[in-house]
Design a protein around this nucleic acid. Structure first.
Lengths: 307, 307
DNA sequence: AGAGGTTACGGGCAGCGTAAGGATC
DNA sequence: GATCCTTACGCTGCCCGTAACCTCT
């Protein structure tokens, strides 16, 4: 057992419950994983996965080994944290973000990460909160910045920031509907917003229903903010989204925030990651994200959020 | 830092204070050690040995790393102890023994080690206690079975066994000196025994001097028990040694234990090793040695010794 | 038949050893 | 000049990926 790579492979096979899954995670092939497990069993003189069955169930000894491997990697992580220059850390880091954050301070975060960890390759995926949670649980991404906290025994989740959530329309549509009461205004055109499965769309529906009695509003859910913005600009409907996503359009006057009585709740964002291997890097980049969010809030006059 | 070999190399360079010494211990060449340290410093982005000086002094960070490496190997050792089949452990183990033990139960110990650790190669060196201590401190041997305990902060030393220490002579010489008092007897011939630097020779000198008033006995110190036995058999002198080394000769009547009034103190033996890497194997083989000693004592009617 | 693990085999590259080259006392 | 570490270089051996095979559901 000269090689930590072998143990890391064992760890992922055990955690993910399969050789193929481990191979995918480790960016290698399944035969390579097979060989490493075989080598480890050979060196230890012990069977780690039940050979009778589908080699996916840990033996008793395998379970014991797993706990030691976790301790070992814990010590290794502490060691790196204590003595290694962050600038020398290599590897890739998979970050999942909600689209709203992409257009606010994600670029700032990327810069900060590049400063602190110049050799870490960021692998960013933009997706809905529901998918991000799934990816987090499946260990497909290391850190998620999304609309909800993650409920999981090994999760570390913190509130990141909150942004206003408003009805927004093109200048023409805003003029044409000037003076209308909320109920008429919001019934007059389709409302273009985030997909129905999202928290924000849920908040919107609740608000329309209980504040205005609109039980069947015409809601168009779009999974791309660019599409929402495009449709709102062309006057196809009233947008329900955060002004932070359309700052340029608001500044130029192409879009306007509608001055409605009814108020939508703020959109909250949360950071979340699972403790385990490489927790140090996750925690560090998560902290950078909170700093970026705070800096952005400072610059834009929103209240700073933390914890 | 994918490779424990690199960390192990760092450990030995730090502990032994030199690249060459580490290379010797790791059975490799000095450039290989050099490359591994360079690689480690590269990966961590940190200087581990003062480059200005002779690269033998740890930097602050190097000191921190060393403590983590020790913890890491500690965990690894516990892991192997918990899950590995001893029969699968490979490597060599350097055992140092006093000659007296070679002729008693060493072969039994070797058999036991071969049973429990069939893949471990035993590397046995027979030497005087003084040399064994030096080798232990220099980490040249893993476990010593010798005449004294080891005083060292990291040493684990236990009493192993005790054997009688007698005056022994050839049958002819025993006949010729029958009836002589101790003082005359022990002055009549040279006394052939262990080298003067040994504990046993010291005990002998003390006994002769304070019990019999023999201030300048004729002592011939031999570093090989076979030589002592050969000279005693040929009647060149009276042997002072342990009967366990000459059981066959005593049984055949070629040698006899002289029935002196004065008694020499028992010869004690101790096991000793330094805690550090691979402590598990050291402790296990040390235990086997104690078992062999106890078994031998049982079979030969000596009192069993332990702790 | 399809998903998942094993075996077989050829190629690439990390790391080793030899040998020559500094640096420091 | 002696001792110790570094650099240069050719080579070996390990490990990987491709592909075919086996085994369960």
């Amino acid at each position: 057992m000269r090689d930590l790579k072998t143990l890391e492979t064992f760890y992922w096979v055990a955690v993910l419950g399969g050789f193929r899954a481990a191979a995918a995670k480790l960016n290698t092939t399944q035969p390579a994983v097979s060989a490493r497990i075989a080598q480890l069993e050979e060196e230890l003189g012990v069977e780690l996965f039940d050979s009778g069955r589908r080699r996916t169930v840990l033996t008793t000894r395998g379970t014991v080994l797993l706990s030691y491997v976790e301790r070992l990697f814990q010590v290794k992580a502490e060691m790196l944290q204590a003595v290694a220059d962050p600038a020398a850390l290599r590897g890739s880091f998979r970050l999942g973000v909600s689209e709203t954050l992409v257009h606010t301070w994600l670029s700032d975060l990327i810069e900060q990460v590049a400063l602190v960890f110049p050799q870490i390759v960021l692998d960013i995926s933009v997706d809905a909160t529901r998918e991000l949670k799934r990816h987090l649980r499946a260990l497909d991404i290391d850190l998620a910045l999304m609309a909800e906290p993650l409920e999981h025994p090994d999760a570390r989740s913190r509130k990141l920031c909150a942004y206003p959530y408003r009805f927004i329309a093109s200048a023409e549509l805003a003029e044409a509907t000037r003076g209308m009461d909320d109920r008429s205004l919001l019934s007059s055109h389709p409302i273009i917003t985030y997909p129905k499965t999202t928290v924000s769309a849920g908040d919107l529906i609740t608000t329309l229903q209980y504040r205005l009695g609109l039980t069947a509003p015409r809601l168009w859910g779009m999974s791309s903010i660019q599409t929402i913005v495009g449709m709102v600009r062309s006057g196809r409907g009233i947008g329900a989204l955060s002004p932070v996503s359309v700052e340029a359009e608001l500044a130029s006057g192409a879009l306007r925030i509608l001055d409605t009585e009814v108020r939508l709740p703020d959109m909250e964002f949360h950071s979340a990651y699972l403790v385990g291997v490489d927790t140090y890097v996750k925690a560090a980049i998560c902290d950078l994200a909170h700093e970026s969010a705070a800096r952005h809030a400072e610059a834009h006059g929103h209240p700073a959020e933390s914890d």
